[in-house]
Write a protein that binds this DNA or RNA. Structure first.
Lengths: 334, 334
DNA sequence: CTGAAAGCGCTTACAG
DNA sequence: CTGAAAGCGCTTACAG
């Protein structure tokens, strides 16, 4: 069933049906009503590749899956985020294409998809500050939204959450709980979220009324790398009485290191994580962590990108969503 | 740049370029070589929506994201699986579309995508035995591949792994380790993997030389539901000396229940999980579990589906991939 | 072996 | 307010 079939049934031309379906004016009241009824009755939808061919737009967006980037493999693109993104896109009549850029030479494929308008815009769920992709996309004029990194590239939209505030809140909690020797066991600073957490941590330290000793240590995401760092922490001279970790995995390693040397948590040392997923519920003790607004992030990214594509006056090209600290055993008051 | 531009440069007609690019014969040696050089030189690729319009095929496959299905939300579609699937599809020149079926009335959207040939085939990463979707897709003749469920619907392909063998192997390990009172704390039987695990468990029990007491209990995936069941187990009269759990989450709850009543693991009771992800590394004790071939599964699904789409003689419409038991502290010998 | 022509299903100036 | 016509970039019988 094509637009011409509908036209025939309505006794009009295909052009009129097209205008009606696209909400353009220049169609009489009665005609429009008749066509709309017919369309609804037959559940007719226009063929998207034909539309794409004549309009040069696809009504599809790409989510780029950056494989082999360890910082990302460790921080998997949460199903919740992707799911919400799809839902929002579909709600706006857009398809979602999943593209892999598993190596630099695959960038060409993505750029080609953009140039050929197989996609109207791109979401990068895990780009970093120095990601080539952002510039490449910008160069070909692709509407682009980055998740989890506050890009300064002109015209690029982003959605992020309050990593900094969450870190600050945790830090204040520790200080108010009487902890005076704090360590931020952060993830790699190449990840934007980790920089923000660092900023929040140090801001809270600075504004503290009490005198506290604070240090920051960087580790890779991997559990064993984190374990090594954590052991070093607990072997150090003035032992930290609170360790704020850059992820729940890191925090789990930290708990393990504490157990090894017989430190009680949270008695001797408080430990917190980040990225609250189910992991923190299963450690011993359970983990104080920070909940990310995953669904909201996915939804906001889709909406922002589509607004950019459709040239809507973008109220905000930059969205910051709130996080939530979840207190569990590992950081209860001493 | 269009096919006609290439034609002009080569001094031939567009038809000849098209035939060359699609590997059809009926093009002279020299002409073909000239065209191929030009295509490579300009990195020219044909516009896919134009191709789709004239061939009625899209060279895209859909991965259907079944939101709000709790059995699936609990078993998130692993990034590794999706990533491998995308890689394989792209390697074969196919795009991957992510479609959400968040409620029954969204099925129409998927069917429409198939009928309109926006996708040439569909992967269902988490369909169950009684899933309407499978039949709906079959009804419209969509090549379909299911992951993790051995569908008996005619013509439907599937990729699964040896849940049964893994469960049997764990069971034998327990018996050989001297355990004589085994419980399978399984996930919902509506999930195909759980049925297979049950089958493997009972097969191993049946073939055991020794006399063993065995029971099977079903639980939802959620941690708290599993905790309730696990407590019941340990309160029961002849206490199990080994509990095989249907997932790592369930196993973690089981560890917690054991701790509550002061049972040592693996001393008093061995506990095993399933679906080895990072969780099992962070429990106390660490968890014996079963590693799934996620990347291989994604890759196999893409390849199978594309073979079906292209009408290749499908050597196997059904693929069973091996699992691997990973032994850790929770099920060491007593 | 190669080309001219029609067609895939839409949209959009251009007329009226 | 509406229609005829051209065009989007390919593919594919049909001729030669």
């Amino acid at each position: 069933m094509t637009i011409r079939d509908i036209a025939e049934l309505a006794g009009v031309s295909a052009a009129t049906v097209s205008r009606t379906m696209n909400g353009k004016d220049g169609v009489g009241q009665a005609t429009r009503a008749r066509i709309e009824r017919l369309v609804a009755e037959h559940q007719f939808t226009a063929d998207s590749s034909a539309q794409q061919l004549s309009t040069g737009r696809s009504r599809a967006i790409a989510v780029v899956f950056p494989l082999h980037v360890s910082a990302v493999v460790m921080h998997p693109i949460y199903p919740a985020l992707l799911g919400a993104l799809c839902d929002a896109a579909e709600g706006a009549g857009y398809d979602v294409m999943l593209l892999t850029v598993s190596s630099p030479d695959r960038i060409g494929h993505l750029i080609d998809a953009v140039l050929r308008r197989r996609v109207d815009g791109v979401v990068l769920p895990a780009a970093g500050p120095r990601d080539r992709l952002i510039h490449d996309l910008r160069a070909v004029g692709a509407p682009t939204v980055v998740i989890g990194h506050r890009s300064t590239v002109d015209g690029v939209g982003w959605v992020d959450c309050t990593h900094d505030k969450a870190a600050a809140e945790l830090t204040r909690m520790m200080i108010e709980g009487g902890r005076r020797n704090l360590t931020l066991l952060n993830g790699p600073k190449s990840v934007s979220a980790c920089r923000l957490r660092s900023a929040g941590f140090w801001a809270a330290i600075k504004e503290a009324k009490q005198r506290v000793v604070a240090t920051e240590v960087e580790t890779e995401w991997e559990a064993d790398a984190a374990l090594v760092r954590a052991r070093e922490l607990f072997a150090a001279k003035p032992r930290p009485t609170a360790v704020l970790c850059g992820s729940d995995t890191i925090a789990a390693s930290c708990l393990e290191a504490a157990r090894e040397v017989g430190l009680s948590v949270p008695g001797d040392v408080a430990v917190t994580g980040f990225d609250d997923r189910s992991l923190g519920l299963h450690t011993t003790p359970t983990l104080t962590s920070v909940q990310m607004p995953l669904r909201e992030t996915g939804e906001a990214a889709a909406q922002l990108l589509i607004a950019m594509i459709e040239g809507d006056p973008p109220k905000r090209r930059h969205v910051v969503l709130p996080t939530r600290v979840v207190v569990r055993e590992s950081a209860a008051l001493p």
